[in-house]
Design a binder for these strands. Structure first.
Length: 491
RNA sequence: GAGCCGUUAGCUCAGUCGGUAGAGCAUCUGACUUUUAAUCAGAGGGUCGGCAGUUCGAACCUGCCACGGCUCACCA
């Protein structure tokens, strides 16, 4: 324990000795800092002096300055900061003593008049001081805030107290999710549902799952890697338009864009095709962007993005042709595709067929170059086991991904609703797994059975909510939009 | 998984050639009745991430370990 912690414990004991509970009780503030600023900052010092507005506020004292018989403090509540101006001759000997002995970090309540200082700063001049809760540890430095990234992630509460941009970002995250919900609920008449997190087989995406064990049933279960297969069962069940915003878990590497658990939105709408889903996606992005920028123009890491313009649309094969001159429209054997890959230094796995190679060309030569919001559609069937074949060209699917500034933000398709085709696709996936793709999904018989009862033509969509929030709040790392990112334990 | 970088007071950071540890904020004492990174005077506060090694002597050099960051690879 250091000197500061020792002193704070002494002060805690002093409070007890004076009959004050250092970890107080309920308190009824009548105003928030931001509210006061909005309502009264427009008035002059004299106008406020005549109004005699009395309010009660509560919060954490985050700064303190003063002289002998008066003191100033900054009080932080959930809305922001308000200055407090405590005068010994107004609050009295005992209250002033409490204020003077209070440490930065302590929670205090004040009742008093809203005034302006000579410097024009909106301030509360209390007549009453209430001690609410003692901080036994000192806060990070007031000017620089908490800079140590590891500590920001491990002790997010300190980051939230001392770095307002971080605090605001998490408020914005909540608002963005609310806006997305509102768009789906109110504009498109979707129903929000909750499906299981514990799956008996992990499907709906290509990823390695976390495995856990259920004792009573004595079976291993997987934490879900996607929401897809359950939501489509609900389309079979006649729910028509459903979505879920929920946590999924992928047992893979971590970096600036990947956390082992993250939040995904998936939506499914009967009778939509993937063009309808493009419109839906634009609607979601605009609703979300409006939260941070009414004109839908944003900047991400120094690069401008206009989410107000119609998103571009391009077929994957055309995009590759445009960037590399390589034309994948003519039908190519796996051997021919591999030759092209060799010529362009695109490496491939044993189990790869033409479609995998087309996708690899896209990822290597096109994906990093996309700046404006762009729907890239027509993914090869080999990498799209849940998407409907294109009616005119069975090598490709009616699937798209949305790219902005070289990053993927959405993945969607006209859903494969032919149970016979679906079983074959699952079998191809199972074969891929045998051939060495650890992330290929297994056969989900129960899901195929559901399809056999009949699923209407359906358009589905998946959006990584964390990446959307990163984009809209200009966050460089996914850890900056997750309150508690996954960290290795310290000891 | 690889490479590079980082870890020094509660926080933000310096630390020269290897010679026994520094600043600002914060804390403590005192002064101060309109401050806002308040000011002024004084004081206390360190397992220099950990463990070994080299050396008369290590925050500094070497090795190993821990945690983190960045980049790359992996990952639709």
């Amino acid at each position: 324990m250091n000197d500061q912690m020792r002193v704070r414990r002494e002060k805690m004991n002093d409070l007890l000795a004076e009959g004050i509970d250092p970890f107080g009780h309920e308190f009824k503030p009548t105003a928030l800092a931001a509210e006061l600023d909005q309502k009264y900052d427009q008035f002059s010092k004299d106008e406020l002096e005549n109004k005699h507005i009395e309010v009660t506020v509560a919060g954490r004292m985050i700064a303190k300055r003063g002289s002998g018989k008066v003191g100033f403090a900054d009080l932080l509540d959930r809305s922001g900061k308000i200055q407090i101006y405590v005068r010994k001759d107004v609050v009295g000997e005992q209250a002033y003593h409490i204020f003077k002995r209070a440490d930065i970090g302590d929670f205090l309540g004040f009742t008093g008049e809203v005034i302006k200082t000579d410097m024009g700063q909106l301030t509360i001049r209390p007549t009453k001081v209430t001690f609410l809760s003692k901080a036994l540890r000192p806060l990070p430095e007031k000017y620089h805030g908490l800079q140590n990234k590891e500590q920001k992630y491990r002790q997010r509460y300190l980051d939230l107290i001392s770095n307002r941009t971080s605090f605001d970002r998490f408020q914005q995250r909540a608002q963005i999710i609310k806006a997305v919900r509102s768009y789906l609920d109110n504009d498109l008449d979707f129903t929000e549902v909750e499906t299981p997190v514990l799956h008996s087989s992990a499907g709906g995406a290509s990823a390695r799952p976390f495995i856990t064990h259920h004792n009573a049933l004595d079976i291993d279960l997987y934490l879900r890697i996607a929401l897809e297969l359950h939501l489509k069962r609900l389309i079979v069940g006649g729910m028509g338009r459903v979505y879920e915003i929920g946590r999924v878990f992928r047992n893979e590497g971590m970096d600036k864009e990947h956390n082992p658990e993250f939040t995904e939105l998936e939506s499914y709408a009967a009778y939509y095709d993937f063009y309808d889903v493009m419109d839906e996606t634009e609607g979601i992005f605009r609703s979300a962007a409006k939260v941070v920028s009414p004109d839908l123009k944003i900047e991400y890491q120094g690069q401008p993005v206009d989410l107000g313009q119609p998103f571009k649309r391009i077929h994957m094969v055309d995009a590759i042709k445009e960037k590399t001159g390589v034309d994948f429209w003519p039908k190519l054997s796996t051997e021919q595709a591999r030759q092209l890959a060799d010529q362009h230094q695109v490496s491939y796995e044993n189990y790869w067929q033409t479609g995998h190679i087309i996708n690899a060309f896209f990822e290597k030569f096109v994906e990093p170059t996309i700046k404006d919001p762009t729907f890239v559609y027509g993914h090869p069937i080999e990498i799209s086991p849940l998407a409907k074949k294109n009616a005119d060209d069975a090598r490709f699917t009616d699937r798209f991904e949305l790219y902005i500034l070289g990053n993927e933000y959405a993945n969607a398709f006209s859903e494969l609703n032919d149970p016979i085709d679906q079983r074959q696709r699952f079998e191809a996936q199972a074969q891929e797994r045998v051939d060495g793709n650890e992330e290929a999904q297994g056969i989900d018989d129960d899901y195929v059975k559901a399809l056999e009862y009949g699923m209407p033509p359906t358009g589905g969509l998946g959006i990584g909510i964390d990446r959307l929030v990163m984009l809209l709040t200009d966050a460089p790392s996914i850890r900056d939009v997750l309150l508690f990112p996954t960290m290795r334990p310290e000891d």
